[in-house]
Design a protein around this nucleic acid. Sequence first.
DNA 1: TATGAATGAGCATTCATTCAT
DNA 2: CATGAATGAATGCTCATTCAT
Lengths: 222, 222, 222, 222
Amino acid sequence: MSALSQRERNRQANQQKLLEAALAVFSAMGYSGASMDAVAEAAGLSKPTLYKYFDSKETLFAAMMQARRDDMLMAFEVTQPGNMVQQLHTFAWGYARTVMRPELMTLARLIMAEAHRFPQVGRAYQASGPDRLLEGMMTYLEDQRTAGSLVFQDAELAAQDLWGLILSAPRSRALYEPEWQPDDAILARYINNGLRVFLRAYATEPDQVLAALEAEIAAYSQ
Amino acid sequence: MSALSQRERNRQANQQKLLEAALAVFSAMGYSGASMDAVAEAAGLSKPTLYKYFDSKETLFAAMMQARRDDMLMAFEVTQPGNMVQQLHTFAWGYARTVMRPELMTLARLIMAEAHRFPQVGRAYQASGPDRLLEGMMTYLEDQRTAGSLVFQDAELAAQDLWGLILSAPRSRALYEPEWQPDDAILARYINNGLRVFLRAYATEPDQVLAALEAEIAAYSQ
Amino acid sequence: MSALSQRERNRQANQQKLLEAALAVFSAMGYSGASMDAVAEAAGLSKPTLYKYFDSKETLFAAMMQARRDDMLMAFEVTQPGNMVQQLHTFAWGYARTVMRPELMTLARLIMAEAHRFPQVGRAYQASGPDRLLEGMMTYLEDQRTAGSLVFQDAELAAQDLWGLILSAPRSRALYEPEWQPDDAILARYINNGLRVFLRAYATEPDQVLAALEAEIAAYSQ
Amino acid sequence: MSALSQRERNRQANQQKLLEAALAVFSAMGYSGASMDAVAEAAGLSKPTLYKYFDSKETLFAAMMQARRDDMLMAFEVTQPGNMVQQLHTFAWGYARTVMRPELMTLARLIMAEAHRFPQVGRAYQASGPDRLLEGMMTYLEDQRTAGSLVFQDAELAAQDLWGLILSAPRSRALYEPEWQPDDAILARYINNGLRVFLRAYATEPDQVLAALEAEIAAYSQ
DNA sequence: TATGAATGAGCATTCATTCAT
DNA sequence: CATGAATGAATGCTCATTCAT
């Protein structure tokens, strides 16, 4: 029993090491630019061992992407304690910080770069990343509409608006300029503006809600 | 003189052929996946000739990107005939159709993919593409503010909001799924919604302006 | 005792399985083209087990060849019931059918292919296959000479003549064209002709013996 | 003009060098055992250059075989000066010496070894080597039948008999034992015996012709 | 005893780059 | 000036062989 689980543990550890090495190497060099030698070395294993675990470069790439995706599925919940303004504010910060993490940006660039070669990878990423989050946000927004706090016709568009208002600009720039990294001040600028515009357009009682937002912003920046 | 200019013309033609071939090959295979053989063959020239014009693969890539960028600098003007609603509507359509063109999407993916290896390319693209357009839009929006049609504090944020509301969602999806292509109905959904939200948030006289927008939308869809 | 002999029996079974797998794999892929993985898998055993039985690929090849050779040593007897013509006719058919069996042709090709690398294998095969049969045939022919049925000076040459007349042509072709396979009609053509020429050249009473041969041939073809 | 033909000459020289190197390496190591590195080195060229000339290992092998075959097509003529006995004697020696040349034996072993993988190579070799020679011999034998010197029904079988009687035994042994090489005394034994048996079986006037053969043999051995 | 797992060395093939012509 | 030809250095992948269990 111990022997078996020892072996199995070793296997899992190696697989994990290889997937992590693959992420690092593919991210740094791109799919074509990455060499299996480099992946094996980064994992501290030999090339034949790598091939024992993954049949080919394609297989390794796809498996690594799948693993990343599975990791990402543990997304945060939109519903936090507090009133709507507080919830949206908290969500915006959590979301922005997650999405703008350098490793995720790098991964996104890699997926886009190889979207032609691995269409299913791009589709799967879109489905389990953005689409899944969008659904959570739609549900939340619809709850707020039911509660009479917001007014809109198309929940999907509203959710996408929130995303676009908050993150479109910094994310677009970060995709083009990997060394550029928004600090909290920059993020605050986009988040605060995004929430303001969103609430001005969608809140049933804009004045009241915007005042609450300013209070929340002020509290947060302390 | 005639001989010289003949030579010069030939030189320019070859250079042009090589840059076009480079765009095609790099776009299709990525930087690492592309071979200089493939570029030379696509240009109908020999490899040594290619190396006469561009010292290395890196040089060729950078030059091709620079050329693309220069092409792109001939961006369309924001100011079209008509009132503000008409101008924004026209601009949104022109912009969306341009930005979502498959070749430009492919190019964007390529730049993002190689942003680590060629940071200046990414920066330059950002500067001469999005940033330049942003400036035009800022100027336009400030004119509208001066004219009393819009109200906002930060013109840059307002311009980015317009972009994010209209194009963030379809562009993001198209980056992940190259075979997905928004048709006019899909674009209309995003454009109309984006303009509505933007005007509701920023127009000095929202009701009036939104009514004009609906009229414009109805007219356009005929 | 029972435990030991059980073990011993298992050992022999494994060895047997490995030798058969080796024959199959080496025959199909050649020595260099065959992989130890393939042999182990074909035997249903693991590679380390294979190496427990055979120290190296070379050893395995040589052992497999030796085993094949030992199998072959159980060759058929020349002396069958009947008169000389009947005996030669029966022998010719038995010999031809044996020698032209696809597996034996494949084995012969394999031995020839590796004759440079494994000289002793080629020598041993020649010694225990053709040479051994030749001796049997020589003894038989000498008996017929003693009995006054045949006349010749060199029994070895006579025996080789018989072989060459009957099988040289189809065997040579089959070695070059593995998919070619002589059916009974083709074999009959070579066998009948070979016996006729042999007896015309060596029989003390050709006319009589050739008539007997034709009768035998006619009887056989019924 | 000089430049072009210089290049062309170089090309041909390289191709020749590669084909010869391929023959040497494939003969020594077999198809699977041979490496393209070894071929390139044997030719004194680099591996990429080798690949400029031949697209793949298979292509190289097939081209080498084709070239060998073309070389071999310049076979010797059966018809030599002298009477039939002299002609057959001369032919037998010329044929035996050619066919038993070590390089040709090695080539034959290679073809047989790879007959499964390259069926067309085996077929082509059979067609342009043995079959072609057989036809020449058939024509000659039929002429002798017409002239009344020989009697037989099936010219093809007669021609194959001659081949089998003379060369089957030494060739078969040499295929299995590459280091064994028949000297003239050994060849003489097979040739003389083969011609004797052939003429005893097929000559219209055996006694006379066999006496002539012995005279020819005696003269040759001086 | 039998094996899953591991690897150094090698293989066919390709690439960015440079001469000789 | 433009090119056919050449190559050192990889690249993805496989193999014979060996341990630790």
